[in-house]
Simulated assay, not measured.
Amino acid sequence: MTTEHGGHSAPANATEYIKHHLQHLQTSDGMFNLDTFWVSAILGAIFLGVFYMASRRATAGVPGKLQNFVELVMELVNDTVNSAFHAKSAVIAPLAITIFVWVWLMNAMDFLPVDLLPKALEFFGVYNLRVVPTADANLTFALSLSVLLCIFGFSIKAKGLGGYAKELFTAPFHATGFAAILLAPVNFLLQMVELFAKPVSLALRLFGNMYAGELIFILIALLPWWAQWLLGGPWAIFHILIVTLQAFVFMALTVVYLALAVEKH
């Protein structure tokens, strides 16, 4: 039996329940996902606030729990950066830390009970809400395209605009003379395929894993309460690994791509 909530119908069956939880809160024209924007923005603000607080409270003596946690995260990211990125850059480490922590926070929204925030916001007249920003392909592609812009920026800074343009037409086949002219279009085509395959793979990998995780939690929510505890607990524990791994992979591949961008080919 369908129940009414302020003119909106509650899901009548499993199919409607799934569709309801996969529906974004959008602008009136349906062109912009407001839930993705606001959840990601709030999580970004939380990240900045916590790390700023940790920096203000940092001490050379016995560190507190917050300082220990932040230093652990920074050490993990710095080890990854130092092992993959050998050029000098004041940007790469902060960028890597931002990517890892922000993506992890967005992924971790999957741990909230499926109906918790949607039901809470119904009291304020909000009837559609998806709380996992990285389960939205729009956000994952926005992140990956930002990485692409960083690749362009790092490449031009390291090689100059002319040097980078020359590389696009001369690598990977470093021919000379007339052969270089003939192979220039082939080199450029291969460079474009390699260049744009990076953000596509970054975006789809993150989106696919988080969308699948979100859908499994929705399906578990349809089960009887005892089955939810029986299956939801182990899946949540396993999902901790997925959430962390996907954030780390996105960060690590970004560092690798930027390291390749500053190398001369």
Score class of each variant (00 low, 15 high):
135 A>F: 15
212 A>L: 13
64 G>C: 01
56 R>Q: 14
248 F>Q: 09
212 A>T: 11
10 A>G: 10
19 K>C: 01
77 V>M: 09
56 R>F: 04
175 A>T: 03
192 M>S: 12
254 T>C: 10
38 W>Y: 14
154 F>A: 13
135 A>S: 15
184 A>D: 02
29 D>I: 01
170 T>D: 04
224 P>K: 07
80 T>R: 06
185 P>A: 07
90 A>V: 01
133 P>D: 12
44 G>A: 04
108 A>D: 05
60 A>V: 02
24 H>W: 10
84 A>Y: 00
25 L>N: 02
59 T>F: 01
165 A>Q: 13
215 L>A: 10
155 S>E: 10
142 A>Q: 02
184 A>V: 08
36 T>V: 07
171 A>D: 10
111 F>A: 03
116 L>W: 14
250 F>T: 02
196 F>T: 09
214 E>G: 03
128 N>A: 10
24 H>G: 03
166 K>S: 05
140 T>L: 01
91 V>I: 06
112 L>G: 09
11 P>S: 10
257 Y>C: 06
75 E>L: 14
1 M>K: 01
130 R>F: 03
134 T>K: 12
177 G>W: 06
149 L>M: 13
105 L>Y: 04
101 V>T: 14
236 A>R: 06
140 T>D: 00
146 S>P: 02
62 V>G: 00
102 W>T: 08
226 W>D: 14
84 A>D: 12
22 L>D: 12
12 A>M: 08
243 V>L: 11
220 I>P: 04
17 Y>P: 05
15 T>Y: 08
229 W>F: 13
204 L>Q: 04
64 G>K: 02
131 V>R: 04
58 A>I: 03
21 H>I: 04
